Amino acid sequence: MKTEETSTAHHSGRAPEPVGLYPHARRVGNLLFLSGVGPRQRGQQAVPGVELDEQGRILRYDFESQCHAVFQNVHYILEEAGARWEDLVDVTVFLTNMRDDFATYNRLYAEYFASSQPCRTTVEVNCLPTPIAIELKCIAAVAG
């Protein structure tokens, strides 16, 4: 099977621009693979709830606002690729501070996924490519 012939790249007009050369999502058969999604807003470099010093280091961040923003960005990408929130089957979560942020993430995740529970893996990473505290990598199963 040649991937070029059987897959379709999707670029969202509402989610933040990728920080590298990749699509927001790629559909292969009945699966939609989302690239890592963070909380930035389209057309902005600033991250919701993040205060940086003059050298670009994080002084403070509002983790809850980042969670809401990243979930909204996932919604945008899914909708524009013809999928729904309920179509998510797997979510990989990258947190930069598991100790301080996991309880908040777990609480918000339970709210957003109250009616559908995809598989989930949560890992802590040292840092992410932009000054964000959370990134999601998602897979959705979509109708043919």
Rank of each mutant, 00 (worst) to 15 (best):
D87P: 06
G82S: 01
P118E: 00
G36M: 15
Q55M: 10
K2S: 13
S12N: 01
R57N: 15
P39T: 13
N106I: 11
Y61E: 13
P48V: 04
A140D: 00
V125M: 03
D87E: 03
V47F: 07
T6E: 14
I134C: 05
F102V: 04
T130E: 15
E86A: 09
A110R: 10
H11V: 15
Y22S: 11
V123D: 09
V142N: 00
F94W: 07
E4L: 10
W85A: 09
Y61T: 02
P16L: 00
A143N: 10
D90Y: 12
R107E: 13
N73L: 05
R27L: 08
Q72C: 09
Y61A: 10
A133P: 07
Q72T: 11
V142W: 01
A83Y: 06
Q72L: 14
A15S: 05
A69T: 09
P48L: 07
F71T: 04
F63R: 03
H75Y: 13
L128V: 03
H68R: 15
Q45V: 06
Y76T: 11
V47A: 05
D87G: 03
R84F: 11
V89R: 13
P18I: 05
A140H: 05
R42F: 07
L88I: 03
T96A: 01
E5A: 13
K2H: 15
L78A: 01
E64I: 13
A143I: 12
S35E: 05
V70Q: 10
A133T: 05
K137Y: 15
A81C: 02
L32T: 02
M1L: 14
L32H: 07
V93P: 02
V91L: 08
R42C: 00
C138D: 02
P39D: 08
L128T: 04
V93R: 07
T96L: 00
A133V: 11
S7T: 08
H68S: 14
R120M: 14
A9V: 15
A15D: 02
E64Q: 08
R40A: 09
H75K: 11
Y61H: 09
G29F: 00
A81H: 00
Q45I: 14
N73V: 09
C119V: 15
I139Y: 03
A133R: 06
Q45H: 11
Y105A: 11
E51L: 10
H10P: 06
L128P: 00
E5P: 08
E17W: 09
D53H: 06
G43P: 03
V89C: 04
P131Q: 02
R57P: 04
Y22P: 06
S116M: 14
N126A: 12
H24G: 01
D62V: 02
E64D: 12
I77F: 10
S12M: 05
P129Q: 06
P118T: 07
H68C: 12
G13E: 14
T3S: 14
V28N: 13
V93E: 00
G56Q: 03
Y61W: 11
A83F: 04
T104W: 10
L59G: 06
E79T: 10
F94D: 02
R107W: 13
E86K: 12
G43W: 01
H11K: 07
